[in-house]
Design a protein around this nucleic acid. Sequence first.
DNA 1: AGTCTACTTTACGTAAACGTAAGGCTACTC
DNA 2: GAGTAGCCTTACGTTTACGTAAAGTAGACT
Lengths: 147, 147
Amino acid sequence: MPETTPASSADAHDSNRRTYTIGELARRYEVTPRTIRFYEQEGLLEPERRGQTRIYHDKDRVRLKLTLRGKRLGFSLAEIREVIHLYDHAPDGDERQLRRMLDILDEKRAALTQQLRDIQALQNELDDVEARCRDSLAVLSRQRASS
Amino acid sequence: MPETTPASSADAHDSNRRTYTIGELARRYEVTPRTIRFYEQEGLLEPERRGQTRIYHDKDRVRLKLTLRGKRLGFSLAEIREVIHLYDHAPDGDERQLRRMLDILDEKRAALTQQLRDIQALQNELDDVEARCRDSLAVLSRQRASS
DNA sequence: AGTCTACTTTACGTAAACGTAAGGCTACTC
DNA sequence: GAGTAGCCTTACGTTTACGTAAAGTAGACT
């Protein structure tokens, strides 16, 4: 179950050698075309052009997916762009750049680790509320039984 | 290490029966006073008033901590407020309300679960980039050795 | 030829989450 | 008693991430 969208197991199949219109991608990932164009404007996507219309390849689709994932985690588009560019132009040449990138990676990883802790903490609090709810419900049910 | 801030293990000690000024809280959690006042305006905090100045108790501090945690996870202040109010006025009376709250809890939990999946996916991608970086570095180092 | 339908650009509008400046009160402290 | 520090309110400004409307184009159907 790699996907959030209804597309289910289609991912493996239509990877590679397919193209998409903006509308197809929009429906698939439940965003508007406007959003997709905006991401392009922000340097997150670079679709091909056939005349005036945009043609999206799987590379673009994956980028979009990555972008939406980042958004769900509360990253800004600027941060997501940074990661995407990390991913795409891993600098094969310069050693200083490579080491700097490893630093950035560490930083991002730290952020994710913090998020994991945050999620755990919130889950505990939800557990707490739920327990109190169920207690209250149990009390109500007992009251009904003894009436 | 329950805390993000430098306060380290102070939490257990100064819980209960202490009060804070807005500046103290701001420094402690690395936000501005303006932010704290804004959260109050949005119904996330309800500090005591001594004359004109705000007095924060541990209850408020915990709420602030919860709020910032939610923010790090990309929740909106409106969503966070919802959770906080869940936490505070767990409706002890109405059964319908209780069941509705359990539904909301399920929903929030689902969101957190999705976040966990997102984080895993991103971590994998970071691993990927890192591996390629290290490969490149290794190549460079071999080139140097053979020169 | 006309009419959908889906794409395009341009551009102004908007909600959320604060930043920032202006002006004022209160309580030390030199 | 003049300053300085820390709090306050009011209010306008700003950034991010789009929404939404207007007007135009390009292909497919009838």
